[in-house]
Design a protein around this nucleic acid. Structure first.
Lengths: 204, 204, 204, 204
DNA sequence: CTTTAAGCGAGACGGTACGTCTAGTCTTGTT
DNA sequence: AACAAGACTAGACGTACCGTCTCGCTTAAAG
């Protein structure tokens, strides 16, 4: 999950505070300026750091922004609202709220956009973002199984997890960023209804 | 839907051939270089045209690329495969095939990415891409109603159209560009099953 | 004698005024800052010109400074003071006055210094500075011959011209820049006496 | 003549070997790269020493290079070839041979060049290089007087020593570094003839 | 048939950011 | 304390691209 230039073991150690400052400055600059107007010189100035320090630790703009964005998604957690439908709605709203942040919105799409041309970047996105969120799907299903809302695993849990993940994340991202319409409670409940009926009817 | 600088009525008329050459060169350069490496100077060279000519017709990179991409989506058509499920699968596969083209993939995400910072660009995307595809959803449902697979409209058709569109397009885009996994027939049939059962169970 | 990047024949022509401004700014910056502190960005700013314009016309710092310095030496002229001794003293004083200018002093030595590592630069110095001044020696001798102070050429005039030139220019440069002592009228008359007695005694 | 940072008397003493290694590495790097491409980091690496060590002992690039060069000139000695003319020719050839070394050539001019902007450096050059060589002129004249080739001092020996030194050193340096032509035996004998005839005719 | 208004290719221009490099200082831990 | 290692700030380097501007030339429609 590291896109950083590795630090040597001898000599003066790298300042840990600089990392925090740089990533925070990157997110702030991203919000204010957007990907294309973001300059590393500006990030360095905001972080109170020389440009060289920045280039010593990251290979370039892409690597830096991916790390800055990945930290945002670390905040996502699995809610426990008592029922599968409520859990799904909770996750969807949480994710949508995250995508309302200009920093997250711009940065995520910028990185995805850049990744269409860069296989290594695709890999890093999968690691840092996609796979982490998939665990949330697994966790939600586990809870529903404990509550008896879903039958226990009958062998291979994998495929449907991927499908559910693509459907949930895809719908939210598309509505937010392509259709550019709000993810309000009405939309969320309609979406959740279609998704869960589709899944449970399929299971029946 | 025009993002072009309007041509004056007097003087020497603009060369029509240049337009075609420029848009084709834009798509080609987009495939080879990606959005961030694409330079208008290079596009001009590929098109055998001076940079001035390019700037005389489009206001900038965004406008040019949106026009180049919009032409790609004009090829999408509504299939008629005899059943609702088959129609949905057909649309999904058609859309996925389009997104497999590097030109479409890169260009679409580049434009969406840029749009997170640019309201006017969001408007143009909605016009040129989102609304055009929504009509396909409406058309597919109309056919299913004619076949008796779906009940006739009970007043307001709008909301579910938006939901279905976000779910279909979102899932395909997400699987293709974020998860970076193939949209094969297995995935498509599972997706279609969940979607249609969710919708018809909801209607019941 | 040109160290300039050649201008193409088509397209917008290069601004002639920029050349003048750049070379003047170079000399001014050289006086104030010296060679090592001189930056091309600063020269560009002083000249009211973009850095790119500067790099479009010259290949680098060396080339630019050589051209700027060469213009200074164009001012040197052959005096006619009525006798060989007076002519020599006039040339020496004129040359010494030039070397008192910080611009000329710093720039000349900077270029000579750089030339110890760069054969092409050595060639340009010879052309632009050394050979031009040698003609002054030839001219001075021709006048002395017309006055009857020196015998006419007896075949090959070359070698002694080189020798005289190295002795005159070398002594002035060394006293000015290495010994760092003034080239006053006393020193000049003693130098001229030794030189001319040496030359005429040799001819006798 | 010291340009070194003085060492404290307490604590671990400075390694003497490091000095030798650093000065040798400086001369080697000077030959290979020239003044402007010479970096102190590189010198440190060649000397197997940390950059810190280097900065602890010298104040900067100028100081280091002057010391490295001054060592070269310590090798110059007064020849005794039996006659004034032969002695002069010997000194000139010895000096010219020294200036043929790329290290000496580049370093000397680099230092002189830098000195046009730095009075302290000018002082150090006078001490370490100019004054040392002047003693050679005095020594040569003393020998010629002992042989009876020159009359004994008639009061003030100073001025002509300076003049002779500037003429000899200037001519050699100029021919070597500005005219860029070889100081061969032909040139040396012609130069010596003019110089000595000029001086003795003046004395007569 | 001229005008004449614009198109067009070529490339210079002022800017801005890039990513690299070096100077000189500072901070570790080790000797 | 000196030392090796290397991080740090500061800032110049030379390149690339942007979007604008000037050229001189060509092209059609309007007078």
């Amino acid at each position: 999950m590291q896109s950083r230039t590795p630090a040597p073991r001898t000599g003066r150690p790298r300042s840990a505070a600089a990392d925090t400052a740089i990533l925070a400055a990157t997110r702030q600059a991203l919000v204010e300026l957007g990907w294309s107007k973001l300059t590393l010189g500006d990030v360095a100035t905001r972080a109170g750091v020389a440009k060289t320090t920045l280039y010593r630790r990251w290979a370039g703009k892409n690597e830096l922004v991916v790390d800055a964005v990945a930290e945002l998604f670390d905040e996502l957690e699995v809610p426990d609202r008592g029922s599968l439908a409520a859990d799904v709605e909770g996750v969807v709203l949480q994710f949508a709220a995250l995508l309302e942040l200009p920093a997250a919105k711009t940065a995520l799409m910028a990185v995805v956009s850049e990744a269409t041309q860069d296989a290594a970047l695709r890999g890093r996105i999968r690691e840092a973002i996609v796979d982490r969120q998939k665990r949330l799907v697994v966790e939600g299903r586990r809870r529903a199984q404990e509550r008896g809302e879903l039958p226990p695993d009958d062998g291979e849990p994998g495929p449907q997890v991927d499908l559910v993940f693509d459907m949930v994340a895809g719908a939210v991202v598309h509505r937010t960023l392509v259709s550019c319409e709000p993810v309000d409670t009405d939309w969320v409940s309609r979406f959740t209804a279609v998704l869960l009926r589709g899944l449970t009817a399929a299971a029946a």
